[in-house]
């Protein structure tokens, strides 16, 4: 079943918002890092993992989620955070390391937490899975609504945590969905070189749960498959595993020369960039006019500019605040 028109427009808007976010971060990230690149310098110091190209997964899944549902994300979390409704101003401020950031600068871009929308991250591969299963268990035990979705990359399927968490979720029959973003590369090692099966959906059989593989980085198809899995979880019928074929248009991190990619791969990927493709599809299907979509794009750009303004204008944390918030506040 296709998404509703409202869902389609939300998905497009959110994909554009995420892309504009990454484009702006990429630009600002280089402030203070030229002519000599030093990760420690600049407006945004540290590692930076951008999600360009992977937006369809985030929107296809999160279109089915409300604030009460739980998402655990990875070291590459911006598209998922934006699609889950994380406070954009505070997220940007966190990425900049400002006092107004989600954690006041203690976490950074790999550790985005927004309890208001039940969003959490771990920068360690596969380690969001356990907490997502636990949150799903919590809802089941409390008799409260809510589904937990753990986003992971395809590289994480070779972590022990993947096996343990999927087995546990299945044994306890909790409302949990594991979504694997298969961007084909674990930093520089290809999926073919690291993974014993071409598609991870077959691994679902090991846990007696449904497994799905979605080809083509197609937001509508992702929306459909995720919708079934999430509805199944909500109905108390247990967890599912979904792997989605996607790709990253950026390096693993900013500064990655991507010498491992075969020649021409990157150019070919830009040809199938999911955002212009979805735009064309909306036009072709008569779902939106060019003017309507331009309007959405302009609004997204303004929204990101606002978040960046908020981040730039915010104060830096007091250095000594590093010593606070180690334990829960009384």
């Amino acid at each position: 079943m296709q998404p509703s028109l409202e869902q389609k427009l939300w998905m497009y808007e959110t994909m554009v918002l995420s892309r504009r976010c990454e484009e702006q971060i990429a630009k600002i990230y280089m402030e203070g890092k030229t002519p000599v690149f030093n990760m420690a310098n600049g407006t945004i110091p540290g590692e930076m993992h951008l999600s360009d190209g992977q937006e369809p997964v985030a929107v296809g899944v999160c279109a089915h989620l409300d604030a009460e549902d739980i998402v655990t994300a990875t070291h590459r979390p911006h598209h998922q955070a934006i699609a889950k409704g994380v406070d954009l101003d505070r997220m940007m401020a966190e990425i900049f390391g400002k006092a107004t950031g989600l954690s006041g600068g203690r976490g950074g871009h790999m550790h985005l937490f927004d309890p208001a929308v039940n969003f959490a991250c771990s920068g360690i591969i596969g380690q969001g899975l356990g907490p997502a299963v636990g949150a799903a268990l919590s809802r089941k035990m409390q008799g409260k609504p809510g589904v937990a979705v753990a986003f992971i990359g395809e590289g994480a399927t070779n972590q022990g945590a993947f096996h343990e968490a999927l087995n546990l979720a299945a044994v306890w029959n909790v409302p949990f969905v594991c979504v694997v973003e298969d961007n084909a590369w674990g930093i520089s090692v290809s999926k073919a070189a690291s993974t014993s099966v071409p598609r991870n959906d077959v691994r679902a059989a090991s846990y007696g749960i449904p497994g799905h593989y979605v080809e083509g980085n197609d937001p509508y198809r992702i929306h459909e498959v995720a919708g079934e899995a999430i509805a199944r979880a909500r109905a108390g019928k247990g967890p599912s595993l979904i792997e989605v074929e996607t790709f990253r248009l950026a390096g693993h991190f900013m500064g990655d020369a991507e010498g491992y990619r075969p020649e021409g791969e990157k150019d070919a990927l830009f040809e199938i960039d999911p955002i212009p493709r979805m735009r064309q599809r909306l036009l072709d299907d008569g779902d939106a006019s060019d003017e309507q979509l331009s309007n959405i794009e302009k609004k997204a750009e303004e929204r990101i500019e606002q978040a960046i303004r908020f981040a730039r204008e915010s104060d830096e944390p007091r250095p000594e605040d590093a010593l606070t918030a180690v334990f829960a506040q009384a």
Binding site: I70, P131, V133, G134, A135, L168
Partner: peptide
């Protein structure tokens, strides 16, 4: 339900305790 034997999967069930605790339980 409340006294829950686990599989031998410490990574998953201790991680699950973290997720449950963050969600309002006290494991």
């Amino acid at each position: 339900e409340r006294i829950r034997d686990t599989p031998i999967s410490e990574t998953a069930f201790i991680g699950a305790a973290v997720g449950a605790a963050q969600d309002g339980m006290r494991p």
